[in-house]
Design a protein around this nucleic acid. Structure first.
Lengths: 226, 226
DNA sequence: TATAAATGACTGACCGGTCAGTCAGTATTT
DNA sequence: AAATACTGACTGACCGGTCAGTCATTTATA
């Protein structure tokens, strides 16, 4: 079977570096440029991986999209797999702090619900993180190392934070204690929204914010208790 | 000019046909054998696709696993993609009837909840359908045709049935009407369970039946109403 | 000019798909 | 029943195309 081909990009070319933000009149220009290059590669890689999946993505296309030559990629990443891992790693790791912060505060459930909706809609679904999560879901099984890293460095921390928060809220009778046992139940509709968006949105568009609001309302809404 | 030939075949192979269920004393033996072959290929393909993903699966390996030669696959399926589609199609299509039947009956919510748990645990999670669903989730995006087929022939029917059922139940005040608007909320934990199982079970095993029970209890349990 | 960065032609391995050839089993003839 | 002819399912070596990764050469920078 002929592999998926990409229509030749004409290329806007590397606006990425240009000048770089460092006013520091030193050798940092190099560093800045280097960081921009790296970023450009990661961005291009995300687009290609998202569109074709890991195995079918050609590094030549990633390079073309980033406006560089293929060999340059190897100056920044050890190999294809390393590039893939770094992409997921760098995008998802920052989420931990955000969610742990959310877990710290004991705010009223109504406000918590709204925060969860906003967090998901604006920090995940509305950003490239959506695509990275999708990638993690799609390809994670073939990268046990990556799944382990993701579980250890990201997911387990989130689970712990959510569990603690829910345990406290349940103790006050504000939420069902099942949510402390199964934090997955809180995240599930978000996961489904991302999958749906990738597979079926063109047949049946999903109003993600409404879905999430309905969801938190079911969990935290009126009449909830153990 | 004759090509170089290989050493004589050793294995007898093909225990598959043997007798075949057809008492019809005709040439059906052939058909039965053929059907068994086809099935063997599909089974082998599921295992390989599940393990490696579509692009990285080698048809040579599928053949090896099915105990046949690579060329034989092409006697049963047009190409690699066709094999993949047929695999998903044939596995998932039968679910529609099952779920539509469930949607027909207006049984008490407590019983409905139990039915949903059982259906998921025994008809999906406990069977190879789990793997096929995972495949659909992982690879569906790269097969728009397949996603469309799946949506049209499977998902939309399920959605319709569930929506109708939930609408009636909501009218009786037995379930929140949000479930009629977003049937995805009912299925979400099942989807998450399948993904979790593939990615993180070795770090944090998930008790799927307990998860599903907690889930339906949240949705349909005591105190639920619009 | 010296050093670092970037390039892209090249290579070796790999794999989907093909097809000439084989042979177990079935049908036909004697 | 035995010999012969026929069939088509099955095989696996091969071909053509692809692509990750390398490295000698060129270009940019300090």
């Amino acid at each position: 079977m002929p592999r998926p081909r990409s229509k030749a990009r004409s290329s806007p070319k590397t606006p990425a570096s240009a000048h770089a933000a460092t006013a520091r009149g030193r050798g940092n220009a190099r560093e800045a440029r280097s960081a921009a290059r790296r970023e450009a590669i990661l961005t291009a890689a995300l687009e290609e991986f998202s569109e074709r999946g890991f195995a079918a993505t050609r590094l030549d296309d990633v390079a073309k999209r980033a406006g560089i030559a293929k060999g340059t990629i190897y100056l920044y990443f050890r190999d294809k797999e390393s590039l893939f891992q770094e992409l997921i790693r760098s995008t998802l790791t920052p989420l931990v702090g955000t969610i742990e912060a959310l877990g710290k505060a004991d705010i009223p459930v109504a406000m918590l619900a709204e925060r969860i909706v906003q967090l998901f809609v604006h920090e995940i679904f509305g950003t490239k993180r959506k695509d990275v999560v999708r990638l993690m879901i799609s390809e994670g099984r073939r990268f046990p190392k990556l799944a382990e890293f993701y579980y250890r460095e990201v997911l387990s921390h989130i689970m712990t934070a959510v569990r603690a928060l829910m345990t406290r809220a349940a103790a006050r009778g504000e939420v069902p204690e099942a949510l402390a046992r199964f934090p997955q139940l809180i995240a599930a509709p978000g996961v489904v929204a991302i999958i749906w968006n990738g597979l079926f949105d063109r047949f049946a568009p999903l109003d993600v914010e409404a879905l999430m609001r309905a969801h938190v309302d079911l969990l935290f809404g009126p009449g909830r208790a153990p």
